[in-house]
């Protein structure tokens, strides 16, 4: 038995040996200098080849990061640790970039708009848009034929009553829907964005009202009431600067057509922890709603009726004494 065992073992062993030597030669002769950085970056990526970074594959993205062409945190589906790892490989500081999500800026459902005609054709937004600007009265509306929904890699978009709605939790901000939309009504905004402008119309007043009950009429009230100067009007359409926005929701409250989306249930209220308050009055100065009471060196208190749950005092406090809690 042992002789047989040994023969077969040695035979295959020798073949292994010979090929091992051949491979050692090949490794030497055909050696290609690969930047070890690229391999390291590639290993730190999730590797699902989703295209969310804008490049057709993780390998290429890794290459572009190593040459500096792509941002270190350009992979939208990587975790914080993975982004930090890539930043470490490239030897740069990891900027904390806010995760984004896609929003379809239109709430003109079939019951809220006037229809120009009844459409019975290919269920394609581009095809519908080509027919005299679509069947909805507003030329800036979402057409609800589902092109965006079909290209979404995570099935995050649903068509309901004639408009597309993106599930904030499922969206990975790859941007495919925004590219696909023939009406350009999809934009990428921070995932934590609270008041969201839900209309893309560049018309104003009667022109909008006559075709849509919930369209933006360009009145500019939102801009006027914003205490933080976070809203600008461009071509009759408001744009929120989320770096300045403090999530107070006043704009949504005052909007006459209700085209600013804001979850009033999520509205928090501020609360000052007495032990930590040093009476510096910084929060009082930051509050635009006169919701803080208390003089210098006195412990400050929040007047709950006036507080709208924006983040001004929270961000102004130097001792982290302000907490935002649910109502």
């Amino acid at each position: 038995m042992f002789k047989e065992l040994l023969t077969s073992a040695i035979a295959i062993g020798i073949i292994g040996l010979v090929f091992g030597i051949i491979l050692a030669f090949a490794a030497k002769f055909f050696h290609v200098q690969i930047d070890s950085k690229i391999a390291a970056i590639r290993a730190a990526l999730p590797g699902i080849n989703c295209g969310g970074c804008g490049y057709p594959g993780c390998d290429l993205f890794a290459e572009k990061v190593s040459t500096g062409e792509a941002r270190v945190n350009g992979c939208p589906v990587s975790s914080k640790e993975q982004k930090a790892e890539i930043a470490k490989i490239m030897g740069v500081e990891q900027e904390d970039v806010e995760p984004l999500f896609a929003v379809v800026r239109c709430i003109g459902t079939n019951d809220k708009v006037t229809m120009k005609y009844e459409y019975e054709g290919i269920q394609d937004c581009a095809a519908l848009a080509a027919l005299g600007g679509g069947n909805k009265g507003c030329e800036y509306s979402c057409l609800g034929m589902g092109n965006c929904s079909r290209v979404c890699p995570t099935d995050a978009i649903e068509i309901d009553n004639g408009i597309a709605i993106v599930d904030r939790k499922k969206c990975i901000a790859c941007g495919k829907c925004a590219i696909e939309c023939p009406r350009d009504v999809i934009s990428l905004i921070p995932k934590s964005a609270e008041p969201i402008i839900m209309c893309s119309s560049l018309n104003r007043g009667k022109e909008v009202k006559s075709v849509c009950k919930v369209g933006c009429i360009g009145c500019g009230i939102c801009k006027k009431v914003c205490q933080f100067d976070a809203i600008e009007m461009k071509d009759n359409n408001p744009i929120i600067d989320y770096k300045k926005c403090e999530d107070c929701g006043l704009c949504a409250e005052k909007c006459p057509t209700g085209c600013i989306e804001f979850d009033f249930k999520k509205r928090k209220i501020a609360f000052i922890e007495e032990e930590k308050c040093i009476g510096c009055t910084l929060c009082k100065k930051a509050c635009q709603f006169e919701a803080v009471e208390g003089e210098r060196k006195e412990i400050h208190k929040i007047i709950s009726d006036k507080c709208v749950g924006c983040r001004a005092c929270y961000e102004a406090c130097p001792t982290d004494a302000v907490h935002l809690i649910s109502r």
């Binding site: 065992l5 073992a9 040695i10 035979a11 292994g16 040996l17 010979v18 030597i21 050692a24 490794a27």
Partner: peptide, 15 residues
């Protein structure tokens, strides 16, 4: 290293 590892793997497989 390369020939040695392949030799060992193949040897054990053969056995």
């Amino acid at each position: 290293k390369l020939p040695l590892v392949l030799f060992l793997v193949a040897l054990i497989a053969g056995m």
